[in-house]
């Protein structure tokens, strides 16, 4: 197995610029193509420990980021190409790495219906998975990054991939996306965290990505049984509370914020039912990251023991 950091820089850049660099992420292979320095820098920093595939292979997603022509080149913008098509707006070069990460998520969001896909962060400890669905702004990324830095294995910060008719999740470990104040919170939380350069003034504000494959088995894509579902809600100044959540409510919330629950129809319902039977559900409201971490670790100790 060849890791990205084992490739000599010339070969890495040559592949990235020409035929594309093939990186294995969980169950998928991405083919990435770009000559942008931001992307070269981002990938070499955050994907150093990912497997690259050098022989002929099938790639699930073909992504390229490049200017469509000299006019875009002069304006300092690029297009996001997916299978040769451009489904997104043009992107400023300084945002190209952040958009590459979003684009890599997006490919999974619109296809991959061999899984029930929940919009959630997923982490593992003692071979049991914790799923954290959350609305944007609920603080799930910050909490997810902090847990990743505290001994949990990150399975995904965006997609809980539940194979149909199971109560398990398939890991798809990639860098964690951090926005605005989360960037400083995480830097302060652990000064050894490896962060990409910050992309300023994106449509989501300031964005940075954190290296997240910190566990020895980070790239193991074996399905993990689920045990816990926590709905985090960060609120400045809020009093800490941790309450058991009705599974029926959790079902509806997770279904509503799923990428393909509705699309899967009855299979989606059956899979969600199976998933809900295998997890305990909690609402977590917090204003201090330390308190939230303690609560999650406490639940892990209690629930995973059972």
């Amino acid at each position: 197995m060849v890791l990205l950091k084992d490739l000599n820089p010339d070969e890495f850049q040559h592949r990235l610029k020409h035929q594309g660099l093939r990186i294995r992420c969980g169950p998928y292979v991405y083919n990435l193509q770009s000559a942008e320095q931001k992307i070269i820098d981002g990938l070499s920093l955050l994907y150093a420990d990912f497997e690259v595939i050098l022989e002929e292979t099938f790639a699930d997603f073909h992504i390229a980021m490049r200017p469509s022509g000299w006019s875009q080149q002069l304006r300092g913008v690029v297009e996001f190409y997916w299978d040769g098509r451009c489904p997104m707006n043009i992107i400023e070069v300084r945002h190209s790495y952040a958009f590459l990460e979003w684009g890599m998520n997006w490919c999974v969001s619109i296809g991959s219906d061999e899984y029930l896909k929940l919009h959630a962060a997923v982490l593992e400890k003692n071979n049991k998975a914790l799923i954290m669905p959350g609305l944007p702004g609920a603080g799930k990324s910050t909490l997810c990054a902090a847990l990743t830095l505290s001994g949990w294995r990150l399975l995904s910060d965006e997609h809980a991939l539940v194979p149909l008719h199971t109560g398990t999740v398939v890991p798809l470990c990639r860098p964690v996306s951090l926005k605005n104040e989360s960037i400083d919170i995480i830097r302060e939380f652990d000064s050894s965290a490896v962060l990409s350069q910050v992309a300023e003034e994106t449509h989501k504000g300031r964005v940075a990505h954190m290296k997240a494959d910190l566990a020895p088995n980070s790239h193991d894509a074996t399905p993990v049984p689920t045990a816990l579902m926590i709905f985090p809600q960060y609120e400045a100044g809020a009093e800490f509370s941790l309450r058991r959540k009705l599974k029926t409510e959790a079902f509806m919330f997770a279904g509503l914020h799923s990428f393909n629950y509705k699309l899967l129809g009855e299979t989606g319902f059956d899979t969600m039912t199976q998933l809900m039977r295998s997890v305990d559900c909690f609402d977590l409201r917090y204003s201090s990251l330390e308190e939230a971490l303690a609560a999650v670790n406490h639940l892990e100790a209690e629930v995973f023991k059972e």
């Binding site: 009705l246 029926t248 509705k262 009855e266 319902f269 039912t273 809900m276």
Partner: peptide, 21 residues
């Protein structure tokens, strides 16, 4: 249907494919 112990039921309709609490 999917039921929890406390009085609410998730109902999936096979006609429309919609889910209701």
């Amino acid at each position: 249907t999917f039921e929890d112990e406390e009085g609410l039921v998730v109902y999936f309709s096979q006609g429309s494919g919609s889910t209701h609490l």
